[in-house]
Design a protein around this nucleic acid. Structure first.
Lengths: 136, 136
DNA sequence: ACTATAATTCGCGAGATGACGAAATGAAGT
DNA sequence: ACTTCATTTCGTCATCTCGCGAATTATAGT
């Protein structure tokens, strides 16, 4: 397997060239997330999200950490990866979609992971107090 | 027109996610080039190169300047574009393909454009002093 | 006008990509 | 062992991408 620097750069750029993957990277800025959390935000099938995360990992943009039943993903810490992500997110800037995702992620983090993965996430509860969302 | 910052970033990344387009951007670091010059280096059909350049232009990574019969392309000067290109070329680093392309471009620039576009470029003319370095 | 030619557009075929649901995998909890 | 459930893998389908050659457009020179 010969993977030239050019191929690596092309792979990284291609991985960034999809809204779901770019949104995922933006979400991970606030810390690690498990697949079900990312799935809840993107509103895609779990298998689809898993495939996207696989792409990001193969491009070296993301790290994978298995913790029991869940798999947590985080931003890769290699300089090349950080440069790519910085460039991409600087270009995306203050996109409304990304900021909405970030808000949703913040709400998600306040919930126990188990509840989220089981039931999905009720997006209508966002505007209100988080305690209400944690209720019945 | 519905072009969010996220869409723009995705488009830019997708444009970078192809070896021919990334090689083109690398070539343009040394200055403007016309389509036939880029075609000579990439060794693709003119229609294919034209399509790639269209992609790069629509992504805002490249500028187009018509000068008589020829169309000259150069790197876009917008900050966002420069950031993308810098990130990509830093990641590609000192790729052998890119350096070979750069050498070929240098030779091309020494020729009058008319001769090049007419006959294509005889790559064996480079062979005298460069074939050993370029490999078989 | 006429020709030559740089470049683009068009149409097509082959292959890659992205979405999904169903089934398989693997780690906890009972 | 059995069940539960988060995640992945697999099969499939629709769509997009990339390459080419042929036809078209546009500009320069005669």
């Amino acid at each position: 397997m010969k993977s030239s620097p050019l191929d690596a750069a092309v792979a990284a750029a291609a991985a960034l060239g999809h809204p779901a993957r770019l949104r995922t990277l933006a979400m991970l800025r606030s810390g690690e997330l498990c697949v079900c959390q990312i799935t809840a935000v993107l509103e895609l099938a779990p298998s689809t999200v898993s495939a996207h995360l696989k792409d990001l990992r193969r491009a070296g943009l993301v790290t994978e950490r298995k913790a029991g039943r869940w798999v947590h993903f985080g931003l890769a810490r290699e300089p090349a990866a950080r440069a790519w992500i910085a460039a991409a997110l600087a270009a995306a800037g203050d996109d409304t979609q990304l900021t909405a995702d970030a808000r949703l992620v913040a709400a998600l983090r306040a919930l126990p992971v188990e509840d989220l993965c089981r039931t999905g996430f009720d997006r209508t509860a966002l505007g209100q107090d988080r305690a209400a969302a944690a209720g019945p």
